[in-house]
């Protein structure tokens, strides 16, 4: 056997290929739709004036790092990137990852899997890597939607800001994958893990918002992955800083190895 590596990763991707492709296409078409929305709304409507009339915290809530709604990068950040990458993609990854270990143990397919010469660590790490496939494809589709869309509606937009935004999105999403994988080895119940995972996505999103809006609790933000990834910085403000991404990479690796460690210690209930 030549390819004696990553069989579990490849198997996992193959098993979930339909969902991966469907969701990625959704991400692409949603992106195209948002670019079209900018063309229709953005230039004409003065969203900024509208926003000025709202209390400060609403502006904070939506406009984490934006220039103005008339700016393509800002518009796409608020209407596309924040919704999809902060909430929808992590929710999809939650469902992707919940079944990976908890589901296998629950469904007892783990019994035969672990009767083969594969270590517990290898099982966890290969399944973690498997989620890398949808992460890369989704980010690729998002980037494609923005670039294709921008070219189609003839908006002046420098591609590299979008490239940076999606490069930084990768460790952000991998932290979620790490967290979900850890949950998946702690609780051998797929439904519970998916519920907790999706709860965490929304909960930590709210925590990030609260940390920015409420006086004196900004430290709460440190727990939330959203604190370390802000697509608006690259897309709208044209600032590229890699500090947040480095923290996220470290966190993702720590979570993946943490999950491997936990799985190595547990009984596989039969």
């Amino acid at each position: 056997m030549v390819m004696a590596m990553f069989e579990i990763t490849r198997h996992e991707i193959r098993q979930k290929r339909k969902g991966i492709v469907t969701f990625s296409l959704f991400v692409f078409f949603f992106g195209i739709m948002m670019v079209a929305a900018f063309e229709t709304l953005g230039a004409g409507l003065d969203m900024d004036e509208l926003f000025e009339s709202y209390p400060a915290f609403v502006t904070e809530l939506f406009g984490k790092s934006i220039v103005s709604f008339g700016d393509f990068g800002s518009f796409i950040t608020v209407e596309y990137l924040q919704w999809v990458w902060y909430l929808i993609v992590p929710a999809y990854l939650a469902l992707f990852c919940a079944g990976s270990i908890a589901g296998e143990v629950e469904r007892k397919t783990a019994d035969i899997l672990l009767s083969y010469p594969v270590s517990r660590q290898r099982v966890v790490l290969e399944k973690f890597l498997a989620a890398g496939a949808p992460v890369l494809l989704i980010n690729g589709m998002g980037l494609a939607a923005i670039l294709v869309g921008a070219a189609a509606v003839d908006v002046a937009f420098e591609a590299r800001w979008a490239v940076y935004a999606f490069m930084q999105a990768t460790p952000f999403l991998l932290v979620w994958v790490g967290a979900f994988t850890l949950l998946s080895v702690l609780v051998y119940n797929e439904k519970t893990v998916s519920t907790l995972s999706i709860g965490a996505v929304f909960g930590l999103y709210v925590l990030d918002v609260v940390s920015r809006l409420v006086e004196g609790v900004s430290f709460l933000g440190y727990v939330s992955p959203m604190h370390y990834y802000d697509p608006g910085r690259a897309m709208a403000l044209n600032i590229v800083a890699w500090g947040g991404s480095i923290v996220l990479v470290a966190a993702a690796v720590a979570l993946a190895f943490g999950a491997a460690y936990v799985f190595t210690r547990r009984d596989i209930s039969g």
């Binding site: 004696a4 069989e7 083969y116 010469p117």
Partner: peptide
């Protein structure tokens, strides 16, 4: 798949 997992 199982054959691949055995590595032989």
């Amino acid at each position: 798949y199982y054959e691949q997992l055995m590595g032989a």
